[in-house]
Simulated scan of single mutants.
Amino acid sequence: MRTDVIALSSPLDTAFFSLLKGSYEQLLGRALLPKVPDDGDEANWLYHDAPFAVLAQNTADDPAFVYANIAAQRLFAYSWEEFSGLPSRLSAPAADRAARNRLMAGVLSHGYAEGYRGLRVAGTGQRFWIENVTIWNLMDADTDGPGSGDTVRGQAALIRAWSNA
């Protein structure tokens, strides 16, 4: 397995959306999105209208967020500009970062994790719990031929619920 760093042109980047959705569906064997409005613009629906939070980070030495839909921006109290490039470790309180790092390393090795619950901190300093979270690798199928593995381009999280700490 190799890693590669993601770069987005915008929060509605269709190539990134394909990577996000395709990786989830390949690893978990089910659809990322419920049925969306008839216009079929799933990337727009996920970014603007989804009732759940979705975040993604790259694979840099100090991974940074590259995507946060509007629900995630509200939850974490950061704008798109503030989220983009923010080291993802800062989303967890300092005392919880080692456990978060172990979780993310496990996802990197195993492909995904489900049912996660963890303490997080918003840009305002307020602490809250993220609950019923699925975290998965963002993977491009390798084009070098069979058995050459996949390229991990980042990791994403689907946060279905949250509560005050």
Rank of each mutant, 00 (worst) to 15 (best):
L75P: 09
F65L: 15
L86W: 07
G154E: 00
N164D: 12
A165K: 07
F52P: 05
L90T: 06
R127Y: 01
N44C: 13
A77L: 09
P87H: 02
N137G: 05
R127C: 03
F83K: 03
I6R: 14
V5E: 15
N69W: 05
A72F: 02
N69Y: 04
S163M: 08
P93K: 07
G22S: 07
R100A: 05
D96F: 01
Y78R: 06
L28Q: 12
L119S: 05
E42N: 12
D62N: 11
R89F: 08
Y112M: 12
E25D: 07
S18M: 09
M139K: 11
T59M: 07
E81R: 04
S148H: 15
A68I: 06
Q155W: 00
A94Q: 09
R127D: 02
L27K: 04
G40Q: 13
H110G: 14
P37S: 09
Q126C: 12
D49R: 10
Y24P: 08
Y67K: 06
A94I: 08
T3I: 01
V5L: 14
L32F: 02
V5R: 15
D39H: 10
A156N: 01
W162M: 10
Y47E: 10
Y47V: 11
A161K: 10
G147W: 08
L46N: 03
A77F: 07
K21M: 05
T143N: 15
H48E: 14
G125E: 12
W45I: 08
L103A: 10
A60S: 15
A113Q: 04
P34M: 08
L27P: 01
F16L: 05
R117Q: 14
F83D: 03
L28M: 15
A99K: 15
P63W: 00
I6C: 13
R120H: 11
G106R: 02
L8K: 15
T59S: 08
A64Y: 08
G111R: 01
D4C: 11
R102W: 00
A56C: 02
L108N: 01
G154P: 00
L28F: 14
R30D: 10
D61E: 12
L86Y: 09
A161P: 06
G147E: 12
R153G: 00
A122C: 04
A113C: 09
L12Q: 15
L32C: 01
G40H: 13
I135W: 00
V133A: 01
M139P: 01
S91I: 05
A60I: 14
S163W: 08
G111V: 02
G115F: 09
E131N: 10
R74A: 09
A53L: 10
L19H: 05
F76Y: 14
A71E: 13
P63T: 02
A56H: 00
A43C: 14
G85W: 11
V5S: 13
A98Q: 14
V54N: 07
Q26V: 11
Y24C: 07
P87R: 04
